[in-house]
Simulated assay, not measured.
Amino acid sequence: MKLGIIGSRSSGKTSLFNGLTGLNVDISGYQKGGVNIGVVKVPDERMERLIKMYQPKKISHTSIEFMDIAGSSDSDEIGTQKLGQLREVDALVLVVRCFESAASGISKIDPTGEIESIEMELILADMDSLGRKIERLEKQARSGDAKIKEQIKILEGLKETLDNNLPLRSRKITPQEQAIIDELQLLTPKKILFVANIAEQDIPGEETVRMISDIVGKNVIAVCAKIEAELCQLEEDEKKEYMKELGIENSGLNKLINTCYSLLDLVTFFTCGPKEVKAYPIARHTKAPRAAGKIHSDIERGFIRAEVINYKDLIALGSEAAVKEKGLFRVEGKEYEVQDGDIFCFRFNV
């Protein structure tokens, strides 16, 4: 999974990036190009218990790649070139400054203004992509090709939404529109997690979450990025003690991951054995053959059946043999939808 961290100047997004990844990227200035990238393991208690049970030679946790897009040195704008680096991410993390910062020269707290400014940049970037695509197709349409004319009509429908200053995620997308969105890697259809970056004295930030939710609806969490950056530098025991002292029940990383899984409607399945224990995130309602394809395309192509044990049953009974004795071992076909916590063994023939 790839998540792009964006935000206005002095929103604290690089501090958040440091807190999430454990890196120590300089926050004193702004890069004129490039992007900060960090990869973190997704914490999952289930993996730890499966590892203890199977004692595998190899362990493969799910990971998240965070991309911190540096702001412009002379304005709040992200910039067209840097926006392009966001096109391959699965979702956006928009950091909103909810603390006073006299040191930055921007003391006024204006979450509405920050959100509208960033959203407009995304809208303008998509308008540009659609406009250029329409322009190219209009030249080809002179030949009278009906299919090209139909495609222009679809593009213009998408552009009309953007012309009304609305992101494409605000409308219902048809399969034909989705094909264009995928081709052009448009930004405004991407789902957004809003992170209210609060001051230490405002922890846990429930009031701030309600305030931001009034603006954007849902998918809002509160994090003190400064504290998160400090926490990630501590040993585990010190970290737990400091979190307890501050009244932080859940780390910013855990809150962000849990919310993103919900935002993207993901579940996790596992493959387990003495060679490897591995976790796979996948969209809810995905059918078994497509899940098999996450492991290897040959397994999807030659899919025969899926042998399934649920994680909760395995842990409760202590072994695969005990699960089978209780009649909880299942064999599923091509129409089976993956459930969170499924442990699979796929049978295939190519």
Results as ranks from 00 to 15, higher is better:
Cys272Arg: 06
Glu238Ala: 11
Ile106Tyr: 09
Glu236Trp: 02
Leu122Lys: 02
Leu184Pro: 09
Glu332Trp: 08
Asn310Ala: 06
Asp128Trp: 06
Asp126Gln: 06
Leu186Tyr: 09
Glu249Tyr: 00
Ser72Val: 12
Arg132Val: 11
His296Thr: 09
Thr286Lys: 04
Lys239Gly: 02
Arg142Glu: 15
Glu183Ser: 10
Gly273Thr: 13
Val40Gln: 06
Lys287Leu: 07
Tyr336Ile: 00
Glu160Asn: 03
Ile304Val: 14
Ala283Gln: 12
Ile248Trp: 00
Ile221Gln: 03
Met47Gln: 10
Lys147Phe: 07
Ser107Phe: 04
Lys275Pro: 04
Leu168Thr: 08
Gly4Pro: 03
Leu155Ile: 02
Leu122Ile: 02
Glu245Cys: 00
Tyr54Asp: 13
Asn219Trp: 08
Val216Ser: 09
Glu320Asp: 15
Ile180Gln: 08
Leu92Cys: 08
His296Asn: 15
Ile315Phe: 01
Gly19Ser: 10
Arg136Asn: 04
Phe344Val: 00
Val350Asn: 05
Asn18Lys: 06
Glu241Phe: 04
Asn310Tyr: 12
Lys191Asp: 09
Lys153Gln: 04
Gly341Leu: 01
Thr208Met: 07
Phe344Glu: 10
Gly293Ser: 08
Lys172Met: 01
Glu119Pro: 00
Gly105Arg: 11
Ile106Pro: 05
Val220His: 10
Ala288Gly: 08
Glu119Tyr: 01
Lys149Leu: 15
Val350Ser: 03
Lys13Ala: 04
Ile134Pro: 03
Ile78Pro: 03
Val42Ile: 11
Ile203Ser: 02
Ser63His: 12
Met120Pro: 00
Lys287Val: 14
Val89Asn: 13
Ile27Phe: 06
Gln185Leu: 10
Ile299Pro: 06
Cys232Asp: 12
Leu86Glu: 03
Ala199Arg: 00
Leu137Ala: 07
Gln339Trp: 08
Asp110Ile: 00
Gln185Arg: 15
Thr188Cys: 02
Gly7Glu: 03
Arg87Leu: 08
Arg347Gly: 01
Lys172Asn: 08
Asp128Ile: 11
Ser8Asn: 13
Gly33Ala: 13
Val89Ile: 13
Leu317Arg: 11
Ala222Tyr: 02
Glu230Ser: 01
Ala292Ile: 01
Asn219Tyr: 11
